[in-house]
Design a protein around this nucleic acid. Structure first.
Length: 919
DNA sequence: GCTCTGCTGAGAGGA
């Protein structure tokens, strides 16, 4: 039986004498959900701790335990000891520390070599280099071969796909193809001569009508993503042959035995396969740099392939390694290198290791070089790296939900589409598959076109599942592409650690590689300096002009505070134009693709006739970049020299901050980086962009919504907000707004901007619905003729919806329509998604209904706000006043607040809002 | 106890 629970007390390891001799044991007290299960399954009071004895080698994992950690013991046995029911490990047991923390196979592989290597890899990433790119190419070709693709065609296509990367590395496609061909022919030879058994051949022959190696009919399967909920491991196996893992290596190995870390890697996949019903005792490692000439004298093997047996001991060892990683991550420990028996003198990362240890004053087996960073910088690093790791934990919890939540819970959480009916699979030319499934309900989810998802035949972890890309998603059908033909009936959001990985690297780069001057400014040790440009950039708006002057004249940084409707996008575009005219190379960035494209759109207008269009480049994925910006998008595939030239020739590059952390962007440098919507970015997120430039300009509004983070910590404050406080003299506030009628603007200005926000022009101050064609306010009920109105609705006492408010809003929209307002000019904002869908059911098509968060950045002629609160205003959503600021500053000409006046007046800020609306 | 976007991604190898 499996025993699972939370560690209750400190754990001690001791030795006892048994009939087998001296043995180690650790007694672990665990709090389980359901208490001890007796032999007769009698119900026992919950939360009563039970005792599990971990024997022998498992005491190594026991040493890692701390109270509060989760522990799983598989195949435990009941152990009656002095009248108490206890549990103990058996010969078949595995002990898993924090099983919900999914450790990557590569992480385990690195950790075996040296725990510090694992840490450094995470901290500073792997820069673009040829051996790695070549290794990746060889793997891709291997996968293609297994899927039946022709060798030369595969090589050409795969090399072509990496055009930009190869360009950055200065490689030419022919010599790369030749390199890859050498390794690939070793694979091909092995597949054909040696190891394609009769069994494989039979399966393949029976499969003549389709392609060779189709996994449904043959014993091969390529690149399978595997997740183990028991062992807390995930990874992607290069190939599986008759149920056993095959790992491909691009390097050479003439020794008889595979390298230990490679064995460990294969053993990880064996564990993963075991959980999926396999029983694996051998693994194969393919060292593709070995040629047939290197035939092993002893074994007579064709040396590319080395088979080895995997005993239970190796598998358990791998689980113990994995436990070390999980425990270190949960405790927030930094590895020193002493944990393993690594030999620093052979290590490629020795220098990096010593520098990092020296700069961050970390204990390290390799030793330290250089001066430690100032204490405040080390403290900053620790706080933020900790916060990023907390964020990573949250991503891991998302993984755990794949098996902890029922399909229905997943669907209700918008994390899965569970109602699919498999329709069709179609082989694609490049060996992949196109899969189609019908949607049987209109359920919504956060899954969108272009996303990478887990496509499964029922369960994303326990069933057949495959990483697939959504090619098309409409109301009644979904089209996917995947490596294998899964009969898909369910799609799950695939949680990605990519953003957290990049945040950590950006933090590292800023502190360990950033210039001293930059850090002096970031830490308040120096004041930002400015040159005074002579010209006037914007004649009719003093604050905007000042903002451009600061941006252009900044030697370090400038901060532009842009409240709603103040033309910050225009200001950025104008500033970039001035920089471009001075011959500077500029990076334009923001957190979201939408914000990048909006800013780029305004910029294109400014740059018309200033530089050629091909000197403006948008870097990003095909699905991320808005359609009308696609012509500017940098294609990754193609001729290396051409792709490189396109990027290097670009004087303006636009990309999200996440993309700024990509290997391609990290090779680029700029004179200035302009970051829009900077108040919605975490500090390390902002670093990813500004690390690439000499100076930076942040544009945003910290009175609107803060960064979206999963864990509550320092990541919720933006660098923008911190610098505005630290260096007020580097900032300019745009104080003239071009959006709202004066009456609408009054409350937000007073409450959030010290009364400094004013209409830019009399026309703006006086705008009303009467200005719109065919609209007359006289046709509206009297109480809605004022630009701001309040409708008191008592509410239906539901928590996240309010049908009474929704019904009232439908009536209001009808009234506005009757007065001539186009539904497309009306927006409805509600705090909860549930209320958004409730309202959507009541209102006519064309009316935009959405949450506050999603409305940020846009505006409408008429905005109706549904507060969805009865009695009290409790709940975190209302606590952040920045949310009402966003909601109230979306309309241009009319604003209607709908809510329970009793609830609203229970909070001082909402109370003042009520007074203003009712005046 | 609610709001939310990024990202091909996991693993590529060097002695």
């Amino acid at each position: 039986m499996d025993v699972r629970g939370t560690v209750a007390d400190d754990v001690e390891v001791r030795s006892v004498s048994t009939s087998y001799g001296e043995s180690d044991l650790a007694e672990v007290r665990l709090v389980t959900d359901d208490g001890p299960a007796g032999e007769d399954d009698r119900p026992v009071e919950a939360h009563e701790p039970i005792t599990v004895t971990l024997w022998n080698k498992w005491t190594e994992s026991a040493e890692l335990l701390e109270p509060g950690m989760e522990l799983l013991v598989t195949d435990a046995e009941i152990d009656e000891y002095q009248g108490e029911t206890r549990y103990k490990t058996t010969g078949d047991s595995y002990v898993v520390v924090e099983p919900s923390f999914l450790v990557n196979v590569t992480a385990i592989r690195n950790w075996t070599e040296c725990p510090r290597l694992y840490y450094l890899n995470k901290l500073s990433g792997v820069p673009l280099n040829y051996p790695v790119v070549k290794g990746t190419l060889v793997h891709e070709v291997f996968g293609d071969l297994l899927r039946g693709r022709e060798l030369e065609e595969s090589i050409d296509a795969r090399v072509e796909e990496r055009g930009l990367q190869l360009g950055l590395l200065g490689e030419d496609p022919e010599s790369v193809a030749e390199d890859v061909r050498q390794n690939a022919s070793a694979i091909e030879g092995w597949l054909e001569q040696g190891r394609l058994t009769e069994e494989d051949r039979a399966a393949t022959a029976a499969d003549n009508s389709e392609r060779a190696f189709s996994p449904a009919k043959s014993s091969w399967r390529s690149e399978q993503l595997l997740i183990s909920e028991t062992f807390g491991i995930r990874g992607r196996a290069d190939a599986i042959r008759r149920g056993a893992p095959v790992e491909l290596k691009t390097g050479k190995n003439l020794k008889k035995e595979p390298r230990f870390k490679d064995k460990v890697q294969a053993a990880c996949y064996a564990l993963l396969l075991e959980e999926h019903g396999g029983d694996v005792d051998t693994g194969t490692l393919l060292y593709t740099k070995n040629s047939a000439l290197d035939r092993n004298e002893e074994t007579g093997d064709l040396t590319p392939a080395k088979e080895f047996s995997m005993g239970a001991g190796l598998l358990k060892y791998v689980v113990r390694l994995r436990n070390e990683i999980a425990a270190a991550e949960v405790a927030g420990d930094v590895p020193t290198g002493y944990e393993g028996n690594a030999k620093c003198e052979y290590c490629f990362e020795q220098d990096t290791c010593m520098v990092v240890s020296g700069r961050l004053d970390q204990e390290s087996k390799a030793g330290q070089i250089g001066q430690p960073l100032p204490a405040e910088e080390r403290e900053f690093f620790e706080r933020f790296s900790h916060a990023i790791e907390e964020e990573r934990r949250e991503v891991h919890r998302e993984y755990a939900k794949l098996w902890e939540q029922s399909p229905k819970e997943r669907a209700d959480d918008d994390r899965a589409l569970i109602d699919l009916e498999f329709a069709e699979k179609r082989p694609l030319e490049e060996g992949r598959w196109e899969l189609r499934a019908r949607r049987t309900s209109g359920a919504n989810s956060k899954i969108r076109e272009g996303d990478l998802v887990l496509a499964s035949d029922g369960h994303p972890v326990r069933g057949q599942s495959e990483l697939a890309r959504i090619e098309r998603l409409d109301e009644d059908e979904v089209v996917l592409t995947a490596d294998e033909p899964v009969e898909v009936t369910r799609l799950d959001v695939y949680p990605s650690e990519l953003t957290t990985d990049r945040l950590l690297v950006a933090l590292h780069d800023t502190l360990l590689k950033g210039s001293e001057r930059r850090k002096d400014v970031l830490f308040g040790r120096a004041e930002p300096e400015f040159d005074e440009p002579e010209e006037t950039f914007i004649g009719n708006n003093a604050a905007q002009d000042e903002a451009v002057r600061k941006a252009v004249g900044a030697r370090d940084c400038a901060l532009i505070h842009g409240p709603p409707g103040t033309g910050k996008t225009y200001t950025i575009a104008r500033a970039i134009r001035a920089m471009v005219e001075r011959g500077e190379r500029v990076l334009l960035s923001a957190f979201t693709n939408r914000a990048v494209d909006n800013a780029l759109e305004a910029l294109l207008e400014q740059l018309e006739g200033v530089i050629e269009e091909d000197r403006i480049v948008r870097v990003g994925s095909e699905s991320g970049v808005r359609e009308d910006m696609a012509p500017y998008r940098l294609e990754r595939a193609g001729d290396p020299e051409e792709r490189l030239a396109e990027l290097e020739n670009a004087q303006v590059v636009a990309a999200t901050t996440a993309t700024c952390g990509s290997r391609i962007m990290k090779e680029q440098s700029f004179d200035a980086a302009l970051v829009d919507e900077a108040a919605q970015l975490t500090e390390p997120g902002t670093f990813a962009a500004i690390n690439l430039a000499e100076r930076f300009v942040l544009v945003g509004d910290h009175e609107q919504l803060p960064p979206v983070v999963r864990a509550e910590n320092e990541l919720t404050e933006s660098l923008f907000e911190r610098l505005v406080e630290l260096h007020p003299e580097a900032g300019v506030m745009l104080d003239r707004q071009y959006r709202m009628n004066q009456r609408i603007q009054a409350f937000a200005s007073r409450e959030f901007y010290d009364g400094k926000l004013r209409p830019a022009e009399p026309e703006v101050a006086a705008r009303t619905l009467d200005d719109l064609e065919g609209v007359s306010r006289d046709d509206l009920p009297a109480e809605f003729r004022d630009p701001v109105a309040f409708v008191d609705v008592e509410g239906d006492d539901e928590r996240y919806t309010d049908s009474l408010e929704a019904a009232r809003i439908a009536e209001l929209i009808a009234a506005y329509e009757a007065a001539g307002v186009d539904p497309a000019d009306v927006g409805v904002i509600a705090p909860f998604r549930a209320q958004v869908s409730e309202i959507s059911r009541h209102v006519p098509e064309g009316v935009a209904v959405d949450t506050v968060d999603r409305f940020q950045g846009s505006s409408k002629e008429v905005i109706i706000v549904s507060f969805t609160a009865t009695g009290t205003l409790e709940g975190p959503i209302f606590e952040d006043y920045r949310r009402i600021n966003v909601a109230l500053t979306r309309p241009k000409r009319a604003l209607v607040l709908v809510g329970d006046s009793g609830a609203l007046s229970s909070d001082p800020v909402y109370g003042r809002m009520l007074e203003w609306a009712r005046r």
